[in-house]
Amino acid sequence: RERTTFTRSQLEELEALFAKTQYPDVYAREEVALKINLPESRVQVWFKNRRAKCRQ
């Protein structure tokens, strides 16, 4: 699998949801995934990595 490159608009959507909740449920992830045209699994991994970045 190729590394996913997020567009600015995708990142804005993801960061907006992250500001609301660092642990979105599957419904919130699927909703944003549809909105930004990415698989839910990519959204899930983005949140995992974003939380790790936050802890550093």
Rank of each mutant, 00 (worst) to 15 (best):
T5D: 14
K35N: 09
L11V: 09
N37M: 06
T7Y: 03
I36Q: 03
L38N: 03
R42P: 01
V45L: 10
E40Y: 06
P39W: 01
A19W: 06
A16D: 05
K53C: 14
R29T: 07
E13K: 05
P24I: 02
E40A: 13
K48G: 07
D25K: 04
Y23A: 06
K53R: 14
T5S: 08
L34W: 06
A52N: 15
D25I: 01
L34D: 08
R50T: 04
P39N: 06
L38G: 03
E15V: 01
W46D: 00
R42T: 11
E15R: 02
A19E: 10
L38A: 12
R29H: 02
E40L: 13
K35F: 00
A52L: 13
E2N: 11
C54K: 12
P24K: 01
Y23F: 12
A33C: 05
E2F: 06
Y27T: 14
K20A: 09
E31N: 10
I36Y: 05
L14Q: 01
N49D: 11
K53T: 11
V32W: 01
C54R: 09
L17K: 04
K53D: 15
L34I: 11
E12A: 13
L14R: 01
C54M: 09
R51L: 06
T7Q: 05
K48Q: 09
R51K: 03
F47M: 05
T7F: 03
R3Y: 07
T4H: 14
D25G: 09
L14P: 01
V32N: 00
L11K: 10
T5C: 15
A33N: 01
R42D: 15
Y23D: 14
E31K: 15
Q10M: 06
E15I: 02
R29K: 05
L17R: 01
P39Q: 06
R3D: 15
S9R: 11
V26L: 15
N37K: 12
R3L: 13
T7W: 02
V32F: 05
R3Q: 09
R42L: 15
Y27E: 12
F47Q: 01
R42S: 14
S9T: 14
V26Q: 15
P24G: 00
E13Y: 08
N37R: 13
L38C: 14
K53P: 08
Q44V: 13
K20V: 11
S41L: 07
A52K: 10
Q22A: 08
Q10H: 04
Y23G: 02
T4A: 12
Q56S: 12
W46P: 00
A16P: 01
Y23L: 04
A28E: 10
W46C: 01
E15T: 03
R29M: 08
R8N: 14
N37T: 03
E13A: 13
Y23V: 07
W46H: 00
Q44R: 11
V26A: 14
P24N: 02
W46I: 03
Y23W: 14
F47C: 04
V32G: 00
S41N: 06
C54G: 15
E2Q: 08
R50N: 07
R42H: 15
S41E: 13
T4K: 14
R55M: 13
A33M: 03
L38Y: 04
K20C: 11
E2C: 02
R3N: 15
V26F: 10
A19C: 08
Q56I: 04
N37V: 03
Q10Y: 02
R1V: 05
D25S: 12
W46Y: 04
R29Q: 05
I36G: 03
R8E: 13
L11H: 13
Q56E: 14
T5N: 15
Q22C: 04
Y27H: 15
A28Q: 10
T21A: 07
S9M: 12
A52E: 15
S41C: 11
K35E: 01
K48H: 08
E13H: 15
K35I: 02
A16G: 13
Q10V: 03
L38T: 09
E40S: 09
L34C: 11
S9L: 13
R51E: 02
Y23C: 06
K20R: 11
E31T: 14
R29V: 14
A52W: 06
V32K: 00
C54N: 12
Y27F: 15
S41V: 09
A52M: 09
R1K: 14
K48L: 08
S41K: 10
Q22T: 05
A19M: 08
E13W: 06
A16W: 05
S41W: 10
R55N: 15
Q10P: 03
L14C: 02
Y23H: 14
E2Y: 04
E15Q: 03
R42I: 09
R55D: 09
Q22M: 15
T7S: 08
R50L: 01
R55S: 08
Q44I: 08
L14T: 00
F47E: 00
T7A: 08
V26P: 09
T4S: 10
T21N: 12
R50P: 02
E40D: 07
Y27K: 15
T5P: 05
K53Q: 08
E12D: 15
F6D: 05
P24F: 00
A19G: 09
T5Q: 08
P39K: 09
S9N: 08
D25V: 00
R1S: 10
R51D: 02
K35R: 10
E15F: 02
Q44F: 09
R29A: 06
R8D: 12
Y27W: 11
Q56V: 11
L38P: 00
E31F: 03
K35W: 01
E12Q: 11
V32I: 15
E13F: 09
Q22I: 07
R51V: 05
S41P: 12
R51T: 03
E2W: 03
A28P: 00
L38K: 05
Q10W: 02
E40V: 15
L34A: 15
V26M: 09
T4D: 11
D25W: 00
R1N: 05
A16T: 13
F6E: 09
L38F: 06
F6R: 04
E2R: 04
A16E: 08
P39T: 13
R50H: 06
V43L: 04
K35P: 00
A33D: 00
V32S: 02
A16F: 07
W46T: 01
E15C: 03
A52H: 10
A16Y: 15
W46G: 01
E13V: 12
R51F: 01
T21H: 05
T5K: 13
I36S: 05
V43R: 00
K20W: 03
K48S: 12
R3S: 13
N49C: 08
E13D: 05
E15H: 05
C54W: 12
A19F: 10
E2L: 05
E2T: 07
R51H: 03
F6Y: 15
S9C: 10
T7E: 12
A33Y: 00
E31A: 12
R3W: 06
C54F: 12
F6C: 07
Q56N: 14
C54A: 13
V26D: 12
I36F: 08
R8C: 13
R51P: 03
N49W: 05
Q44H: 10
A19T: 12
Q44N: 14
A33W: 02
V32A: 10
P39D: 10
L14N: 01
L34N: 09
P24M: 01
Q10I: 03
N37L: 06
L11P: 00
F6K: 04
T21Q: 11
V26T: 11
P24T: 01
L38M: 13
F47T: 00
T5L: 05
Q44G: 10
T5H: 05
P39E: 08
R8L: 10
L14W: 00
T21E: 11
D25T: 12
E12P: 02
E13N: 07
R1Y: 02
Q10N: 02
R1H: 15
L14F: 02
